[in-house]
Simulated scan of single mutants.
Amino acid sequence: MKKSITTVIIDDELHSRDELIFLLSRYKEIEIVGEADSGEKGLEIVMRKEPDVVFVDIEMPRMSGLELAKSLQNMKNVPLIIFATAYVDYAAKAFRVQALDYLVKPFDEEQLQETMERIKERLVTTDKSEEITTGIAKLAVEDEGRIVYLSPIDITYLFREDRETIICTKERKFSSRTPIKDLEGKLSGYPFFRTHKSYLVNLNKVEELIPWFNGAYQVKVVGQKEEIPVSRNYVKSLRERLEL
């Protein structure tokens, strides 16, 4: 990921812009390269600066945040869109224009922290994807004295058991002494998601999301009988990643 995350803030309310700038100033990786009080000015700045991230209000005169987001989809390098608005009713429309997240005013610091984690995760994934295109990119695991090379797209999920990480494909399971956190880093260029502190799931293999108890869920993946736990803290992020 880049050392700095270039950011533009677009909101017709000065107070909201100032509040968001103040909150983002706590993140040393954020570099604010522009701000605007209208969609038209914001579009001009974004086209010129080509930032990594755009925080934009939805309800603005003349050009709304949704209209701006649609216009940005035509860029060669589309920035990550974070809607920052007082209106919760636009969430579904926001994600239809491929918004990464949706912040509700007044801004909650914990919610902003979650947003920052998603931004960093997405930018790391993008960088890793660019690296992967230049190489073979297979995961090496030991198997009875041999080294087996697994294609990440064939892995359904991984989990930690005792002191080993179990790597599951549709056909069989492999064990590795590599911590799941390290394997998560190696697989960050692929659509893997941490559903639980001990589980990492390939989102392309998910078939069902099943309610469990106390707000927790389980997921069913292709070719596996086991149902994988989803901690309630991860449910919202998981659904946002999976659903249109």
Rank of each mutant, 00 (worst) to 15 (best):
S4Q: 01
S4L: 08
S4P: 08
I10V: 12
D12L: 07
E13S: 03
E13D: 10
S16A: 14
R17H: 10
R17E: 13
L20D: 12
I21A: 09
Y27F: 08
K28W: 01
K28Y: 00
K28P: 03
K28H: 02
I30A: 05
I30R: 10
I30L: 06
E31V: 01
S38H: 06
K41C: 07
G42Q: 02
E44T: 11
P51Q: 02
D52M: 01
V54I: 11
F55H: 13
D57N: 06
S64E: 05
E67L: 12
E67W: 14
K70F: 00
L72Q: 13
M75N: 09
I82G: 04
F83G: 07
Y90S: 06
K93P: 02
F95E: 07
Q98N: 09
Q98G: 01
L100R: 05
D101R: 02
P106R: 06
F107W: 14
E110F: 03
E110T: 07
Q113W: 04
K120G: 10
K120L: 13
E121I: 02
R122K: 15
R122S: 15
V124H: 15
T126K: 12
E131N: 10
E131K: 08
T133V: 08
T134G: 06
L139N: 11
V141Q: 04
E142T: 10
R146V: 11
I147E: 15
L150R: 03
S151F: 08
I153F: 09
R160A: 10
E161A: 09
R163F: 00
I166G: 13
K173E: 12
F174E: 06
S176R: 04
R177P: 15
R177H: 11
D182K: 02
S188A: 11
P191V: 03
F192D: 01
F193I: 02
T195F: 03
T195M: 10
Y199I: 02
V201F: 04
V201L: 14
L203R: 00
L203E: 06
V206N: 12
E208I: 00
I210G: 14
I210W: 00
G215H: 05
Y217C: 03
V219Y: 07
V221Q: 11
Q224I: 13
E226L: 06
I228C: 04
P229R: 00
V230Q: 03
K236I: 01
S237D: 14
L244C: 04
